[in-house]
Design a protein around this nucleic acid. Structure first.
Length: 637
DNA sequence: AAAAAAG
């Protein structure tokens, strides 16, 4: 039974069956306007009528007209502007900030556009999979968690959207992070991907912007500098796009404008989007710096800063860029802004760097149970580099023979961009329908590869680490680490591409002699996850493993039931009365908080047997309900 | 030594 079946009959569930009650999408140029058939545009720049934005959805529902009525009658108002950024319709410039009196006389056009949006159809999370997860917080005056969205005053507009997304109750990270963020506190949050992180920082940001009585800064003719009130940074273009899509759903009909900018695609188009006004800017670092240096974006109005995949953002290659943005470009200092860092892993050295950006922050870590790791069956095989291709071939053939090739997607990680291309070619020659994604491809190719993988056109995707983090691709049944990463954190992120949203997944690693430095960390991780560890790996771990370095550079190992722990607790530099730690217990955390999901897995011979249960059946251990496959699509982390 | 992110 699908969990939707016993979902309480809320307004949102009824809406699914009663099409006519679908709310109407109001494009930005019509927001804050009176509802109904005779839609008119209020002049931009007015500052009245903003006090109740927080508690009133900008609604124009109730027309109850058929959805097809407007076909073929579009005014062409969009004229393709801004379309490259996604499905959302971006209005033409003159309607937006021209004479301010222009009427949109054809609301049907809007209905038509709404059809294209499918805004709320694809945001589903298995909330029951997130029960009973151990959570740890530390810091001063920690706001208590909530157990339902109803307890939090997010405002009507946002609450409506939460309902539309069919978010029945908050995930653990949301239960804790949202009250903390609403209290205006800085936050360092550690949670697995797929646990609702995006919503956890988007809700407070949107709510905060709505509470702020001042209207969105008005774009005027000739004024080309955008002043977002919130900035969300992420390490890859695709991830930024995903956060953007997600944030738009939450900001729907609130009047809060979300814009994304990233490299590899037309900067002019993105600048035009910014000219329409922006409250929340989602960005990758490079393009953002570019725009700031061109004086098209200013960070001086930023009140909220969120870093997704924060550990990557503060990693070697990124740190300088991030520091530049956060410390040298008009950004209000810590304390004057609210800073939220999110990641699945938070190594010690990264926490030290991050504390520069934070002010009296609260550390929050959510255990791995129920998030995803316990749903992933991890296997590791010793394969020499020479044999990897043939090994992969037989693996894929076994999968094929097992009849699991249908919707089941296989994600193959390799070390290098060249390696990705080479392996894709080889797979193609061997009759496998595959595609590749890496940073040397042009953006269009990257997006096309991702799309053709997502849709199952090419059910095998060969990827570099560009696809390792944050990307939520539904139906990834198997992650193969053709080349293992150097760092165990990267391994955690990579296998997190499967086993998402309450489904089980399979992760196979090809371990060669080059990976011996990773042996100990991998061993520990698999042991914690109650995975079957092959004897040879145990041996490697014993003979070659050093004590402090668990495959992480420096002192990065936070090996407990949580992804990491607050370094302030072991720093001992805090004054005596500074009591950080406090444990919450919805449930008692078991000594080993991974749930067993183990198969003895000598390769191929019995490959098909466990695979059948892995590829199609969802593990229901420790969870109440299990989703239908169709229940899940693109939710973001 | 590699990947990502600016062009």
């Amino acid at each position: 039974m699908s969990w939707v079946d016993d979902e309480p009959q809320t307004e949102s569930t009824q809406r699914r069956t009663t099409r006519s009650s679908l709310p109407t999408y109001v494009p930005p140029n019509l927001r804050n306007s009176v509802t109904g058939r005779n839609v008119f545009v209020k002049p931009f720049g007015f500052t009245t009528d903003s006090s109740d934005r927080f508690n009133r959805a900008v609604s124009s529902r109730g027309r109850g007209r058929g959805r097809d009525g407007g076909r073929g009658r579009g005014r062409g108002g969009g004229r393709g502007r801004g379309r490259g950024q996604g499905k959302f319709w971006v209005p033409s410039g003159e309607a937006n900030y021209g004479s301010n009196t222009k009427e949109n006389t054809d609301p049907f056009d809007i209905v038509e556009k709404f059809d294209e949006l499918e805004v709320f159809e694809d945001t589903l999370i298995n909330f029951d999979a997130y029960e009973d997860i151990p959570v740890e917080t530390s810091g001063f005056d920690i706001p208590p968690p909530v157990s339902s969205f109803a307890e939090i005053d997010l405002g009507k507009a946002l609450s409506d959207n939460i309902g539309r997304c069919r978010y029945v109750k908050p995930t653990p990270i949301q239960k804790y992070a949202i009250p903390i963020a609403l209290a205006g506190r800085d936050l360092m949050a550690c949670a697995q991907t797929g646990s609702g992180k995006t919503a956890a920082f988007c809700f407070p940001i949107i709510s905060g912007i709505l509470r702020d009585n001042t209207m969105t800064p008005v774009p005027k003719w000739g004024v080309k500098v955008a002043c977002p009130r919130a900035l969300i940074l992420s390490p890859t273009r695709e991830l930024s796009c995903q956060i953007h899509e997600e944030a738009k759903k939450f900001a729907y009909q609130t009047g809060v404008k979300v814009v994304v900018v990233y490299g590899g695609s037309s900067i002019d188009q993105q600048l035009r989007c910014l000219e329409q006004g922006v409250d929340i800017l989602v960005a990758t670092p490079g393009r953002l710096v570019d725009m700031i240096e061109r004086a098209r974006v200013s960070l001086q109005k930023v009140k909220y800063l969120a870093l997704d995949e924060a550990d990557r953002m503060l990693d070697m290659g990124f740190e300088r860029q991030i520091r530049k943005i956060v410390e040298q470009m008009e950004m209000p200092p810590p304390g004057a802004r609210q800073t939220m860092l999110f990641s699945a892993t938070f190594p010690t050295d990264i926490q030290k760097l991050a504390s520069d950006f934070l002010s009296n922050y609260i550390f929050l870590t959510v255990g791995r149970v129920g998030s995803s790791t316990d749903l992933i069956d991890q296997r590791v095989e010793f394969v020499s580099d020479m044999d990897k291709r043939n090994y992969l071939k037989s693996l894929l053939n076994a999968q094929w023979a097992n009849g699991t090739h249908g919707k089941a997607l296989t994600l193959v990680f390799v070390e290098t961009k060249k390696g990705a291309d080479a392996l894709e070619q080889w797979l193609y020659k061997n009759g496998f329908s595959s595609t590749a994604i890496h940073g040397d491809k042009i953006q269009m190719e990257r997006e096309r590869a991702l799309r053709s993988f997502k849709t199952g056109v090419t059910p095998i995707l060969v990827a570099t680490d560009v696809a390792a983090r944050g990307l939520d691709i539904p139906h990834v049944a198997h992650v193969i680490n053709f080349d293992l990463p150097k760092n165990i954190d990267d391994y955690v992120h990579r296998i997190g591409r499967t086993g998402r949203a309450g489904k089980s997944g399979l992760a196979t690693a090809f371990f060669s002699d080059k990976n011996i430095p990773l042996a100990k960390a991998l061993f520990k991780l698999m042991q914690e996850a109650n995975q079957e560890v092959p004897p040879w790996l145990t041996q490697f771990a014993e003979y070659y493993g050093s004590d402090d370095d668990g495959g992480r550079q420096g002192n990065r190992y936070g090996g407990n039931k949580f992804g990491s722990h607050d370094i302030r607790n072991d720093a001992r530099v805090m004054s005596g009365n500074y009591c950080y730690s406090s444990q919450y217990g919805d449930s008692v955390a078991p000594a080993n908080s991974y749930v067993a999901n183990t198969y003895v897995a000598p390769y191929c011979a019995d490959y098909a047997a466990p695979a059948s249960s892995n590829f199609s059946a969802a593990s229901s251990q420790s969870y109440g309900r299990v989703h239908d496959e169709s229940d899940f699509t693109d939710g973001w982390d």
